[in-house]
Design a protein around this nucleic acid. Structure first.
Lengths: 337, 337
DNA sequence: GTGAATTTTGCACACCTATGCAAAGCGCCG
DNA sequence: CGGCGCTTTGCATAGGTGTGCAAAATTCAC
């Protein structure tokens, strides 16, 4: 292990003081002359500022902590990739954590504590909640938190979601217009705000249309539970299923087609939520509500940076609307092709 | 922003010296008595050691930098999730970077430089190469690098892959045994070692079986190119296709079935590579070579940690064998069900 | 050339923890 | 009680950078 080259080494070589080197690399004022001398010396020695030392003194690490629950749903890797890119563009880096799907508050709190230990400048929690105790702790430490694709009312935390209630409504209205009469719902996990909101909007609009659902089963965002739920609902004889997200919808479609030998959409219409890339694949051609990931990510990052740069900034609650994307998995209303 | 609570504050409150506090939290020797006093004081004040300051002085950040090229292929989110978990268990954290799919050496080198700036203890590069200059730089800085699912001969870097040549051979032998006579290959990107190796093993075994491929087209690991390649090969009349990874294989299957109206496996057998979870879904039921992600990840982490803890450790090159998983997308040899 | 206004520079210190070193404490045996 | 070995403790310093402050250098107008 070769000795690290420090700003002192560069200073000596350039014939200036250490502070001059620091100023050149931190963008503070420095004369054109010394700047060139310093850069030359730095290049010769292969010097790069030590980010740790810098963070220690500035109190800003330029690191954002991110927590994901499960990357099995392709919506999240997509989001992660975009987050990483947007944050990189803003000069931030991302410390990524995952918590088990079955995570309880303890797991998450431990992870959040680790992020605090690392002096992150902010945190993004994707589809993950936060105990009030920890939220308070982040508040006390002055670390902004933004929930992504997850709401938590009364927590006082900033959050960015799609318009889940409105999305659920759209699906119900679409299925009603399509003349479906025996509608079932494989819901997203009812322990999550997104799952509940989509279900709520869906059921409200259904009721307004004068229908009761044939059944509502919690798919808990997992492949297995979704299949079980779909199986049960199919047994009750449905002609349409609204599934709480695309990832479960694929599982449901496979089960309907290959195990129960039902045709989609002739026997059963299926509608999902998210519009992940796979939904457009010919094998599924899934009608679904689009979550505008790009905009959601940008909004999330912006909200976070606002809070970082202006500590007094209000914790915003953003809801981003997304359209229903019509494809082949659900029967369309008459006159609409 | 409330003032941070430091080890001095705890020391004062506990009536001991700052070093005592440090020793308690870094696990060094301390008497039972002071340990309890310190812990009590720390709990009251909500003290947690500042990881940055610790890293600065120990020279070890306990952070691993990871680079991913594309998370669109579900193999990688899966790997990422496992990496994150295994590293967390080992007391490390992960700084995640992504580079554009079209990344050239410049992009990657810039990212690697940023990781070096952050004083990472080690780096994992997933399906991404590294210029010789940067490799040398890491070497000089004493930062171990392990390539995951990517080889780079002559680079002197540690690498963990599956046995890609052997895997390619297995597929060829299986298709030959199945009596296929017009075999095509949608290859993985030929700019990558994995792509080349799989192709090489496949073609070697095919030749040994006395067959020439109907055609070989580079799918470049993308949906679009894979479809184009499959289209071309189908036009040439194939009865079997070996596709360089599962992600492309799904695209190929959709195209064969829904655009070209071919039956799988009656008209065309399709074999993939990776065995991502989706390959087991009824919609695809893809015969494929399994990459044992779990073992690959553990091996990678172990290799990395070995190098971190013992700087003189040799950079290992590990190849992990994986079985061919028989499912429904490819005709099986007689007598084998 | 002179004084004022402005920029640049260096000094010294701060950020927070880990650790070598020497002193102090403790237990133990003769 | 003295002496010895071992553990615990505090002091002081290091790790590499940013930044307030005052001195020095430069610019500018006259």
């Amino acid at each position: 292990m070769i000795k690290r080259v420090t700003s002192f080494d560069v200073a000596e070589r350039a014939g200036v003081s250490q502070s001059a080197v620091s100023r050149v690399f931190s963008g503070a004022s420095a004369s054109k002359d010394t700047a060139t001398k310093v850069r030359a010396a730095a290049a010769e020695l292969g010097y790069r500022p030590n980010v740790l030392a810098r963070s220690l003194i500035t109190g800003r690490s330029r690191i954002i902590g991110m927590v994901f629950a499960y990357l099995g749903n392709p919506f999240y890797p997509d989001a992660l990739e975009r987050f990483s890119r947007v944050l990189q563009d803003e000069g931030y880096h991302t410390l990524v954590f995952t918590v088990p799907e079955t995570a309880d508050d303890t797991d998450i709190d431990r992870v959040v504590q680790q992020m605090l230990d690392h002096q992150v400048d902010g945190m993004i929690l994707a589809s993950v909640g936060l105990s009030d105790a920890l939220a308070a702790r982040c508040e006390a430490a002055g670390i902004p938190v933004v929930l992504f694709n997850r709401g938590q009312t009364g927590s006082g935390l900033a959050q960015v979601t799609s318009a889940n209630r409105a999305g659920g409504r759209k699906v119900a209205e679409f299925l009603l217009a399509g003349g479906h009469t025996r509608i079932g719902h494989v819901s997203g996990w009812q322990g999550s705000s997104t799952g509940r909101d989509r279900t709520e909007g869906f059921l409200d609009a259904l009721a307004e249309g004068g229908q009761e659902p044939v059944g509502v089963e919690d798919g808990r965002y997992t492949h297995e539970d979704a299949v079980k739920a779909a199986d049960k609902l199919a047994g009750a004889g449905v002609d349409a299923l609204f599934v709480g997200n695309d990832h479960m919808a694929f599982a449901v479609m496979d089960h309907l087609r290959f195990t129960l030998n039902l045709r989609i959409p002739e026997d059963v219409s299926v509608v999902g939520y998210d519009d992940v890339p796979m939904a457009a694949w010919a094998g599924y051609s899934l009608t679904t509500v689009r979550q505008p990931v790009g905009r959601m990510v940008k909004t999330t990052v912006q909200a976070l940076i606002n809070q970082i740069e202006d500590k007094s900034a209000q914790a915003e609650i953003e809801e981003i609307d997304g359209p229903l994307i019509l494809r082949g998995s659900a029967r369309k209303p008459e006159g609409l092709q």
